[in-house]
């Protein structure tokens, strides 16, 4: 229970105006940290941003990951190479790719603006990606999708290998087209994995951290702060571990409820389907 003890300890800390060093008094303040968090505008801005990030990344990541997994599951030239190429973003360190993406989304002469203006001619003005809230969240989400697609792909590939070929053949005999086969054979066949991926992606989205810290550090004016960057700032920059812990438990309860709903809605159907 290497996480259990620290967890309980953090829970305890969240009821204190906790002093970092044990030699100084930590004052018990009950639920004050929780009440403060619920009324903290910045915390809720962070929650909204995390929700936006979730909506921008999770459906896209899962869909793209599943799409390419389906394509790469079947035999094709250079399949092994492609699988590796899709996996490379997953294995590159978050710190390095976050700084890399910050560089790509640079306003003047950044690679993304070059691609949009000079290559696709979608716009003539450079977009100040990281200088404003919503475009910055899009940039951070782009990194999130790019980094996680390969992860989904790998899990789905493993899951697809367990779907029995006979089922596809049977469906094909029944005259089902590719989309129908996908919907009626593939999806039920990998439902458990799909749930697993969804739950973990949602947890991951609420826990988005290094990319935001390094690309915008929550700015400008705190508008792109997410729960973890704000907690980190409170705990490690401002040494308010009590407050940071309280927020992390509010976030955890939130995630727990959402995960529970996911199990409820996606998990139940598993029994119905099989």
């Amino acid at each position: 229970m290497t996480t259990g003890y620290p967890l309980l300890r953090s829970l305890q800390i969240s009821f204190y105006n906790w002093s970092v060093v044990p030699t100084q008094v930590s004052k018990f303040i009950g639920l004050d940290n929780y009440i403060r968090a619920l009324g903290d505008e910045q915390f809720w801005t962070g929650m909204v941003n995390a929700a936006v990030y979730l909506l921008l990344t999770v459906p896209a990541t899962v869909a793209i990951g599943l799409f390419f997994a389906t394509l790469l599951h079947a035999r094709m030239p250079a399949r092994a190479l492609f699988r590796v190429l899709f996996y490379i973003p997953v294995v590159t360190s978050w710190v390095v790719v976050s700084l890399l993406f910050k560089y790509l989304f640079t306003t003047n002469d950044g690679a993304v603006n070059w691609f949009l203006t000079d290559f696709l001619h979608l716009t003539s003005e450079s977009i100040p990606w990281l200088e404003q809230r919503w475009t910055a969240l899009i940039a951070i989400s782009a990194l999130g999708v790019w980094k996680s697609v390969g992860w989904c792909l790998v899990v789905f590939l493993a899951a697809l290998s367990g779907v029995r070929e006979e089922l596809y053949e049977a469906a094909a005999l029944d005259g089902a087209n590719a989309w129908q086969r996908f919907l009626h054979v593939t999806v039920p066949g990998i439902r458990g994995t799909l749930l697993f991926v969804l739950v973990l992606q949602v947890i991951g989205a609420f826990n988005v951290f290094p990319s935001v810290l390094l690309m915008t550090n929550g700015g400008p004016a705190g508008s792109t702060e997410v729960p973890l960057t704000y907690m980190y700032k409170q705990a490690f920059s401002f040494l308010d571990f009590g407050y940071g812990s309280a927020m992390s438990f509010i976030l955890a309860i939130f995630i727990f409820v959402i995960s529970f709903l996911q199990f409820r809605f996606f998990g139940e159907k598993k029994e119905v389907g099989s």
Binding site: G4, P6, L228, F241, S248
Partner: peptide, 16 residues
């Protein structure tokens, strides 16, 4: 255990 942000429990974990 997967849902609690690891970053905040790092101090108690370190002491452990």
């Amino acid at each position: 255990g997967l849902m609690i942000p690891g970053i905040v429990i790092i101090v108690p974990q370190f002491i452990l």
